[in-house]
């Protein structure tokens, strides 16, 4: 394998920005790595890759990576990214967000970016908690779980982010976990290849806050949970019983439709040809 870690690090990381700020055992590093591997696999020109993030633990990823990187305000990454992509459609625009970032404060931007089917690959590092602020419940914290702002158990119902994105109009949707890194990489590759709005949810783990608050054990145990409790969505075809009480992973939706900036270019071209 020629894409060993140190080669990738040298090629794609801002080595002088390391080490990263994530806690020991955090799943974000693995997910960041899958983003880099997907970009490398597709051989994208670094000068044409733009990484945009919002605020939260996930938002720090672009700072470590040697692309055009934009660390924006909480929840707004997709709105900034929309401006960049529309202004210069040649750029490969990738947005990295957290669960609260993408679906609470940024929920409206998510559904509208998906609705437009603008060619942005959105990757959510979902750790079921607000980590940066110290462990408050997020829109993906499971019902009944504990958080600093849910000291008696969470009574909110969690979002299924992939269903949300698909319902809003994303044309490529999939989910993997920090444990299922090769699958995560593959989904990101496919998302980048899709000319339209792609949404990849990466289940991450937060041993420091979510794990500790909910007695999930250490990082190894949390990874083991992913290993034991996730199944590929393909099982639904032949062995749907295997999916019972499991988390579904894999490619959920792949249905290309007219892309926003291309549709806009058609309007521009009408005038250019006059």
């Amino acid at each position: 394998m020629n894409t060993n870690c140190s080669n990738l690090t040298e090629k794609y990381f801002r080595v002088n920005r390391l080490p990263h700020i994530w806690c020991p055992g955090c799943g974000h590093g693995t997910l960041m790595n899958t983003v880099v591997r997907a970009i490398d696999k597709l051989g994208l020109n670094k000068d044409e890759v733009v990484l945009v993030s919002g605020i939260g633990c996930s938002s720090r990823a672009p700072g470590y990576l040697d692309f055009n990187t934009l660390h924006t305000t909480h929840g707004r990454a997709l709105a900034f990214a929309t401006g960049i992509k529309l202004a210069n459609p040649k750029l490969h625009v990738i947005v990295i967000m957290g669960d609260g970032d993408s679906s609470a404060i940024g929920g409206n931007h998510l559904i509208h970016a998906a609705r437009r089917n603008i060619d942005i690959t959105t990757i959510v590092f979902n750790n079921n908690i607000y980590g940066m602020t110290g462990g408050q419940y997020s829109p993906t914290t499971p019902y009944g779980d504990f958080a600093t702002t849910a000291p008696f158990g969470n009574i909110d119902k969690p979002f299924d982010l992939c269903s949300l994105a698909q319902g809003a109009g994303a044309t490529y949707v999939g989910r993997a976990t920090a444990y299922h890194a090769p699958m995560m990489q593959k989904l990101i590759e496919n998302g980048l290849k899709n000319k339209g709005f792609s949404f990849i949810e990466g289940l991450s783990l937060c041993p420091t806050y979510y794990g500790r608050k909910n007695k999930k054990g250490n990082a190894v145990k949390m990874h083991t949970f992913f290993k034991d409790n996730c199944v590929d969505v393909k099982v639904l075809e032949k062995n749907p019983e295997k999916a019972e009480n499991k988390i579904l992973l894999g490619e959920f939706y792949n249905n290309p439709k007219p892309e926003y900036t291309e549709s806009y270019q058609v309007i521009i071209d009408k005038f250019q040809n006059k």
Binding site: T73, G83, A87, N88, I111
Partner: peptide
């Protein structure tokens, strides 16, 4: 855009991309 938060964000993105 979907609101003015996003409008302001989008013009910053547009400007950063050179327009």
């Amino acid at each position: 855009m979907e609101d003015e938060l996003a409008s302001m964000a989008a013009i910053i993105g547009g400007s950063l991309a050179g327009l």
